[in-house]
Computed example of a mutant assay.
Amino acid sequence: MSDKPTTVEVNILDKAYLVACPDEARGELQQAARHLDSQMREIRASGKVFGTERIAVMAALNITHELLQNDVSEGAAKVLERMNSRLDEALGESGN
């Protein structure tokens, strides 16, 4: 496996884009492009947003929001995990 980038063609809203990408990340890039394409098609189909640039910005905002929500959820899960662990330790120390 080489970190040397190769050119990968992805299609978003029926337009081809050439993107430099390491071979080992090719599948992830294609998956990301499919996700972006899907988000943009949904926004375009809603009929509320016009213009490729505006559709792309709305898709970027939606995807960023999803990522931030996941980060918050994962962060909350970690806090709950730590609290649970501390409770287990405290209960173990008290003999219960």
Rank of each mutant, 00 (worst) to 15 (best):
S46M: 12
F50I: 05
A45D: 10
A60D: 05
R44L: 13
L68D: 10
E42C: 04
L36H: 03
L67Q: 11
R44P: 00
S46E: 15
E66K: 14
A59S: 09
R54I: 04
V49D: 00
M40S: 08
V49S: 05
V72L: 07
T64C: 11
Q69P: 01
M40I: 11
A56N: 02
N70L: 13
F50K: 08
L68T: 07
S46C: 11
L67V: 02
A45K: 15
E66P: 06
M40D: 07
G51W: 11
D71I: 15
R41Q: 00
L61F: 08
E42H: 11
R54C: 01
H65P: 06
N70W: 12
F50Q: 01
L36M: 01
V72N: 08
H35G: 02
V72R: 04
S38W: 11
T64W: 06
T52S: 00
I63N: 00
R44A: 14
V57L: 13
V49I: 15
A59C: 12
T64S: 08
V57K: 13
Q39N: 12
E42S: 12
A59E: 03
N62S: 09
Q39E: 15
A60P: 03
F50W: 08
Q39K: 13
V57C: 07
I63Y: 04
G47I: 07
N62Y: 05
L68S: 09
Q39C: 14
G51C: 12
A60Q: 14
S38H: 11
N70D: 13
T52L: 00
I43H: 10
A59W: 01
I63P: 07
G51Y: 08
D71Y: 14
V57T: 09
E66F: 12
M58K: 11
I55P: 05
M40P: 02
H65T: 03
E42D: 15
D71W: 11
S38K: 15
G51E: 11
K48G: 01
Q39S: 13
T64N: 06
D71G: 09
S46H: 14
N70K: 14
T64E: 01
N62I: 06
M40F: 03
K48P: 02
E66I: 13
L61H: 07
R44Y: 04
G47K: 11
E53K: 15
M58E: 01
V49F: 02
R41D: 04
M58S: 03
V72Q: 08
I63V: 08
H35M: 14
D37A: 06
L61W: 05
L36V: 10
R41H: 06
T52V: 08
F50V: 09
E53T: 02
D37Q: 07
V57N: 06
L61N: 09
R41Y: 09
D71L: 14
G51H: 10
R41V: 10
F50T: 05
S38I: 10
M58W: 03
I43A: 14
S46F: 10
N70E: 14
N70Q: 15
L36Y: 01
A56G: 05
L68I: 05
